[in-house]
Write a protein that binds this DNA or RNA. Structure first.
Lengths: 123, 123
DNA sequence: GCATTTGTATTAAAAGAGTAGTACACTATA
DNA sequence: TATAGTGTACTACTCTTTTAATACAAATGC
């Protein structure tokens, strides 16, 4: 695993993407924190932290002693998409504010870019 | 200065906005790191760090022993800001499209986040 | 029931970010 | 040239974040 961004965040991203890609489906069991820790050559607690993060996001459910499971897919995916997009938009808005742009300016730029992209392509 | 976001970033924002507002023009000399440090009741190094950040952005030029000067014309800076924000917004929109979100959904998320960050009052 | 596997909690160590203190190097100007 | 003012480099200290070590608790499978 490469550095720059904390391991537990990288791991959370990994799991998220694998779920979105269909690698794990609803109700399916994920690798145990220890197994994944061995595979990724990292401390079990680091994986545990990633799993806990995903739990608070509503992506995972941890059953004490039983394992970790993917929660309902439609909701999860929707929520996941929303969170991701939300975070990225927020980042853009933040730097816009940082540059001193006004709300109306930001909105204008956004609308222009939003409408310049087609409705559904890019799988 | 209020906390939450590091001082040196707040200071960089301040300078950027003042340049954008026309308070400082191209080639004009900025307050020395020590003067500004006194005024803001902060360590000179903290101001220096803000200035260095602005230098890497191409906004400032530091002349060793001479002072710090605005390099870019305001218009260029403004354009740079626009380009940056545009790129980041586009990135967010792209991933939203990739998730299959509809235009109206993206707009809704954007507006919610946009309004959650208040407009900066001009100091 | 018991041993193993699992998630979780607690604590400590390591790493990083932010700020401050000090010293250095260069410039302007008297 | 001398002096004061300037940006910069280096170091250390503090606080938060991240990771690791260990122990605990619940569930599974024999």
């Amino acid at each position: 695993m490469e550095d720059g961004v904390p391991f537990y965040l990288q791991i959370a991203d990994l799991i998220r993407q694998q779920i979105l890609a269909g690698r794990y489906r609803a109700g399916e069991k994920l690798p145990s924190v220890r197994d994944l820790a061995v595979e990724l050559r990292v401390n079990p607690n680091t994986v545990a932290r990633a799993y806990m993060l995903l739990q608070t996001e509503g992506t995972l459910e941890g059953r004490h002693g039983g394992g970790s499971f993917v929660t309902q897919p439609e909701d999860t995916t929707r929520l996941l998409a929303r969170r991701t997009v939300e975070a990225e938009l927020q980042k853009a808005i933040d730097s816009a504010r940082r540059f001193g742009l006004k709300t109306s300016d930001i909105r204008e730029i956004f609308e222009k870019n939003l409408l310049s992209t087609p409705e559904d392509p890019q799988p």
